[in-house]
Design a protein around this nucleic acid. Sequence first.
DNA 1: TGAATTCACTTAACATGTTAAGTATACTCC
DNA 2: GGAGTATACTTAACATGTTAAGTGAATTCA
Lengths: 159, 159
Amino acid sequence: MVKARKDTRALDDAPMRDFEHSLPMALLKAREAAMTRFRPMLRDHGLTEQQWRVIRALADSDEIDASELARRSFLLSPSLTRILRNLEDQRIVKRSSDLNDQRRSVFVLTGKGERIFSEVAPDSERLYAEMEAEFGLARLGKLYDLLADFTEALSAGDR
Amino acid sequence: MVKARKDTRALDDAPMRDFEHSLPMALLKAREAAMTRFRPMLRDHGLTEQQWRVIRALADSDEIDASELARRSFLLSPSLTRILRNLEDQRIVKRSSDLNDQRRSVFVLTGKGERIFSEVAPDSERLYAEMEAEFGLARLGKLYDLLADFTEALSAGDR
DNA sequence: TGAATTCACTTAACATGTTAAGTATACTCC
DNA sequence: GGAGTATACTTAACATGTTAAGTGAATTCA
């Protein structure tokens, strides 16, 4: 009853796209390997990965609207809406509305938000530095360049 | 009222970790660039990305248990539980229990599941081929190798 | 052999991802 | 200056991600 399935490829034939070895999967696994280190640290500070992305973006700019925040933190607006509501409830960010355009909301870190940022940033830097040390700065640079090229190449048509 | 924030870095100083340019972010963006092409195709077939990962894993093996399925599709078990319940409801997979170990459930694709696989696989291959063509097989190979090395390097301690 | 532990899931709770639709404000152009 | 359109979110609905706790079946080992 064991049907011979579609494994028509030779074993070392097309390793790139062989079953569970697709590029999206490889990207996912690499990201997960990195985040496995970051998530526990962030959780110790009571933050999710995405909340931290938002806080980091806010820390780098005074007064930023939701659209720009979404772009910089690479979050979709529906997710960002929920995250900002949550961060507002926790008094980590403050919302006000743009007086020149009532459609826009602009956000800043509160004192509490800035305090959190300054507590988490060093831990984050430390983990990045460890990653660099373990993988090697040179290879990391190559990886970083290739990823940027790849993203650029695939996004070319979308504009 | 514009406070000068912590933008103490020179503009071209440390491009690797400058704000929104962290490696996890770069990995996320690269993956998103790829998935932006795959998701609409999968949606046309009524599947999510994760459902397709499960179906693909099942298509490559007869009788696989949930743990192995989770490993191959790179899903956490709580997610997999829900996805399998959904695919069962749609009669795309069939569950039976392992008679040698009552804790285990084993899964196979139904006829409908195999039909779906054979419909989606060519579209999937086509999109992969397009990606290869646009980015270049050589660079893609390098990227793939670097990702595997990176994942391996960062996972080394977890065993 | 039976109490303690491990294993293979499953449930629960909350956060985010993804798509589509809704709402209010701003803009455009006749 | 008002209909039509575009913009900036927000809501809704469903699927998945993430962690912790729960459940029942195997395993271990005193």
